[in-house]
């Protein structure tokens, strides 16, 4: 088991390295000049050259890449002379935009995105599983059909639209909720949750719809398995048959997808954060891409990749717990 875990972690590191290299390569071939951006509109060509040298952009790409990667583990000094910048471990560089360490930017923003993702995930799991389960057990009835129609509508509505509708109804018309304004959980869970409820609902409505459909399909398939017939033939209560024998198997494929979805969202829900003006990683990504702020984009890409590969590992471990066939293999 330990060996397996180590091997998997090594693989995670490898994947991160590759993603880092690819992102680097992409920026290298892009025609934008970060030095010009960073220097500002009034810079003379000489100044730009100076800035470029300080940012290390005049060096060959593999050197830049090597410096970047070692910097993460050992820290490094950017540029030299009086303008040299000390960048401490873990060093992901400085933003071209506002000269702040990327690491600090990320750690500032991360709690917002994590709050958003975890709350939304809880909501959509509860909602999606419940709706999917009911629809599967009432398969073919009017209830099933209307639930599925609703999920289809909900899944195909753009996030902008859902967000606007929720704002309009819950905030402006009914005034049940405040306009979202992020409060850290340290200011009290009520304020935290109250302000995040609207973004949570927006994000969850999209995912819940997908999960409901997924749960329904998976549950219908499982309930047709011969072992379900065996469970019934043993005289078990239908309740036991559905939960202990049916649901447990039906959830296995959902675990995989949940891992991926959550992993992706932890590193920022770009549109949702943008719509509600939440200062999360998604928002940061959005700005960084527009301004070609390479260190920041690189940072968030790595962060996203980190979460996704980690989530994958988590999924596999959970799998081994629920499905003994995997455990022995």
């Amino acid at each position: 088991m330990t060996r397996y875990l180590l091997r998997r972690l090594a693989a995670v590191a490898g994947v991160l390295l590759v993603i880092c290299a690819v992102t680097f390569a992409v920026f290298y071939v892009l025609p934008s000049d970060p030095a010009a951006h960073a220097c500002g509109k009034t810079c003379t060509p000489e100044q730009v050259t100076l800035v470029r040298a300080q940012m290390g952009l005049d060096r060959p790409v593999y050197e830049q890449f090597g410096g970047y990667v070692t910097g993460i583990f050992t820290g490094r000094v950017l540029g030299d002379g009086p303008t040299a910048l000390e960048c401490s471990v873990p060093c992901f560089g400085y933003s071209y935009q506002n000269a702040l360490p990327v690491w600090d930017l990320l750690t500032d923003r991360l709690p917002v995105s994590v709050s958003l993702a975890l709350g939304a995930a809880a909501l959509w799991l509860a909602g999606g599983l419940a709706v999917g389960l009911v629809a599967a057990l009432r398969r073919g009835t009017a209830l099933d059909r209307s639930l599925m129609a609703a999920t289809l509508a909900s899944a195909s509505a753009p996030v902008y639209f859902t967000a606007m509708m929720l704002l309009l109804i819950l905030v402006q018309r009914l005034e049940w909720l405040p306009y979202p304004d992020y409060r850290p959980i340290s200011e009290g869970p009520a304020a935290w949750a109250g302000n995040l409820l609207l973004p949570w609902m927006t994000l969850a409505s999209l995912y819940a719809a997908m999960y409901a459909r997924l749960t329904r399909a998976s549950m219908i398939e499982t309930m047709a398995e011969p072992y379900i017939r065996t469970a019934r033939a043993k005289g078990l209560y239908e309740r036991t048959v559905v939960t202990k024998h049916g649901l447990r198997s039906a959830l296995t494929p959902i675990v995989t997808i949940f891992g991926m979805d959550l992993g992706g969202l932890l590193a920022g829900a770009v549109i949702t954060e943008h719509v509600f003006g939440l200062p999360g990683v998604g928002q940061l990504t959005y700005d960084a891409i527009f301004k070609a702020d390479q260190p920041v984009v690189l940072g968030v890409t790595l962060l996203a990749a980190f979460f996704i590969t980690l989530a994958n590992l988590g999924v596999d471990l959970v799998y081994a717990v629920i499905d003994p066939r995997v455990r022995y293999a």
């Binding site: 398995e225 011969p226 072992y227 017939r229 065996t230 469970a231 033939a233 024998h245 198997s249």
Partner: peptide, 13 residues
């Protein structure tokens, strides 16, 4: 009752 396919008739988990 017992069934034809004993593998799929037993719960894998």
């Amino acid at each position: 009752m017992i069934f034809q396919d004993p593998l799929s008739s037993l719960h894998p988990f």
